[in-house]
């Protein structure tokens, strides 16, 4: 297995995440698409660490990325639940309060 195989796998995963973010109506489903994209970026970091780097810097960066993703998902879900409490829906088509 070479580096390009892992990069293509991560590219496929990223594209699927893009599709999910752009097409889903449910706010939590959009969040899942974002998680897919974050995971594909992490695969890239670890693959470069294996094939190109001599140390473990790529894995340290992947670790920080995982930590930040955890913080991001906590805040995002809090926002989603706050929106749900205010408007009783998480349908993104109906969340147009901020539209000018």
């Amino acid at each position: 297995m070479t580096l390009t195989d892992y990069l293509i796998l991560s590219g496929l995963l990223f594209s699927i995440g893009v599709f999910g973010v752009l097409t889903r109506k449910n706010a939590i489903a959009v969040l899942m698409g974002v998680e897919l994209m974050l995971n594909s970026a992490n695969i890239n970091l670890v693959a470069f660490c294996k094939f190109v780097d001599t140390g473990v810097s790529g894995q340290v960066f992947a670790l920080f990325s995982i930590v930040i993703a955890a913080a991001e998902v906590a805040v995002a879900l809090a926002i989603v639940i706050a929106i749900y409490k205010a408007t009783r829906t998480i349908d993104l088509d109906k969340e147009d309060t901020l539209k000018g």
């Binding site: 899942m32 998680e35 955890a70 879900l77 989603v80 639940i81 749900y84």
Partner: peptide, 20 residues
């Protein structure tokens, strides 16, 4: 972190919002 933490959070988010 992902499977033990983030996924549990997401499942909780699904359960706490209606109209799923």
């Amino acid at each position: 972190i992902y499977i033990g933490g983030v996924m549990i959070l997401i499942v909780f988010g699904v359960m706490l919002t209606r109209n799923v």
